[in-house]
């Protein structure tokens, strides 16, 4: 699938631009919070990851931690990118996917004085406090890129496109990114669809439907898809991502993409083979989904349900 990475200076409207870009292209937006929630199975390990991240560079395990973090981050984003078109905000996405194709790596910048004014307004801060916050945030990002990837965050040669938001709006910046991405796709002959069919706001590069043509995230999903195929029940694999939480800048911080959609039954199905005591996160997402999208029908197939299915069809041995 396709992806766009966005790196940004604090206060440059990077989050907003990422969100609008994702909306315009119907891509899935991935940010720090989503990544860390997916990579940490509980709040405790989430906190531990935060601590480890801050500790990088301060202890003898620096190299090992860096490698582990890059490996797990890359594996997770790679899995996501196999089934989704992505807009990745921060997290060194431009370095993780440096050689990925098709990809567009964007940096959002803005003069410091302008960013101070924006942060003062957004967070109701004085000039000095806004300046301090910007310095801290930019320093943390610079450190993250240095510690995790051993790269210089300020090196503009790492990007395909640099946008200065000093004199342009969020929407205009997003338009520039979208158009750049489409032009890049055309020039590189990147898509499987005929070039003239490239839509302006929906760049889905392929839409395989059958279980044999799709790379599933888990064997249970593949088995379930085969069952549906067998009984001639139409299905789509992860066709829609439901935003569940947003931060103060309107960026999506939590989302839920159920595994299957059965259009003839207007039903989403999520399969989880985690042990019952570990499904709290999924249940929480399901409850939130029901709150925000009361008309959406969701069925969760838990591990015990899945085992019952296997027993029913004599596949449990």
């Amino acid at each position: 699938m396709a992806l766009i990475t966005l790196s940004r200076e604090f206060g440059s409207w990077g989050e907003e631009i990422a969100r609008v870009t994702a909306e315009k292209l119907d891509f899935l937006l991935i940010n720090k919070k989503i990544i860390e929630e997916e990579l940490s199975p509980s709040p405790e390990t989430h906190d531990q990851m935060e601590l480890e991240e801050k500790a990088l560079g301060k202890n003898e395990h620096q190299s090992l931690l860096r490698k582990e973090r890059i490996f797990s981050l890359h594996r997770y984003l790679n899995q996501l990118s196999e089934e989704n078109n992505l807009v990745i905000l921060g997290r060194g996405g431009h370095l993780l996917f440096k050689d990925y194709c098709p990809a567009l790596h964007v940096k959002i910048i803005c003069p410091l004085e302008k960013r101070i004014l924006r942060v003062m307004e957004l967070y109701s801060l004085g000039k000095k406090a806004a300046h301090t916050l910007i310095s801290e945030q930019d320093r943390d990002r610079k450190k993250y890129i240095k510690d995790i990837f051993n790269e210089n965050w300020l090196n503009l040669n790492l990007y395909d496109l640099v946008i200065n938001t000093d004199k342009i709006s969020v929407n205009r910046a997003a338009e520039i990114i979208v158009n750049s991405f489409i032009i890049m796709g055309k020039s590189n002959d990147l898509t499987t669809a005929p070039q003239e069919e490239l839509p302006k706001a929906n760049l889905v590069l392929s839409s395989p439907e059958k279980s044999k043509e799709i790379r599933f995230m888990h064997p249970s999903e593949e088995e379930f898809a085969k069952m549906l195929d067998f009984y001639r029940i139409n299905w789509k694999y992860e066709p829609r991502t439901f935003p569940l939480e947003w931060d103060s800048e309107g960026s999506i911080t939590e989302a839920f993409a159920p595994d299957f959609y059965l259009p003839d039954h207007d039903l989403y199905v999520e399969i989880t083979t985690q042990r019952q005591k570990l499904v709290w996160k999924k249940n929480k997402k399901a409850r939130r989904l029901k709150e925000l999208y009361p008309d959406v029908n969701l069925k969760i197939i838990y591990n015990k349900d899945y085992k019952s299915l296997l027993t029913k069809f004599g596949l449990d041995n």
Binding site: M227, D229, F230, Y231, R232, F313, G314, L315
Partner: peptide, 13 residues
């Protein structure tokens, strides 16, 4: 036919 039966496990009902 039933899913999982040896003769039909890769086909359709």
């Amino acid at each position: 036919s039933r899913y999982g039966e040896k003769t039909d496990s890769t086909g359709v009902v």
